[in-house]
Amino acid sequence: MSDKLLEVKNYSIASTDDISILHNLNLTINKGETHILMGPNGAGKSTFGSSLLANPAYKTTSGSILFENEDITDLPTDKRAKKGIFLSFQSPVEVPGISLYSFLRAASKNTANPLKGKLFRQKLNDTLKNLDLKHEYLERDLNVGFSGGERKKVEMLQLLMLSPKLAIMDETDSGLDVDAVNIMLRGITEFQQDNEKGLLIISHNMHILDKLKIDKVHILVKGHIVAEGGSELIDEINKTGFVRFETQEGGNNV
């Protein structure tokens, strides 16, 4: 099974003050696949995405994470990122004092095939244009004073520049206008072209999903994966919401 990219096995996590959040999750993403993680607010979707990059706000209480068949459960955040995992943040953090340009340069040095000098600038210029981002953003401090839409675009800019093996996108399209959503779609479609790469999209918003190629959908409710299937699950949720899954989960608990 050499085409496995990410394999999460019997994975449970808790907050640092020991409140358990995710229970015994199992999920495998193969190269070339796009997976969707859906669920109502507070289900633990963002926590899951963030924990895949070892967010220090959470701790693993059981199970393991394999990336390209290597156990990375104990690796810290930066080591996981260097292996090729990318998390697009739902609310990207403002980091005063670091310019976007210095940041991109530093981050791209850590990738598998870092681009040098002219090639880096070339790719940067092309990507900026593609995402309809102005050049002067590069000199501004990372995310400081950026609007919600600008931040999302800057996350996409990083994704395309760093070209990771696995991208986890957290609510990429929330709060965006139609034009911006289309720009994000262009970015995601571009990323999907490479069948060595994998994608996990976290969403409770459907707008973006019906325009994308989707391999598998997972439904997360109260920290449990309660259903899995193809894009037909998305249609169902579009019509009836998460009610069926929530009661199902509630039944489990009783």
């Binding site: 810290p76 996981r80 990122a81 980091v95 850590n110 990083q158 760093l162």
Partner: peptide
């Protein structure tokens, strides 16, 4: 929080 963001990009 800042550090996690930077580390998530391999820094």
């Amino acid at each position: 929080e800042h550090l996690f963001y930077l580390q998530s990009r391999g820094i």
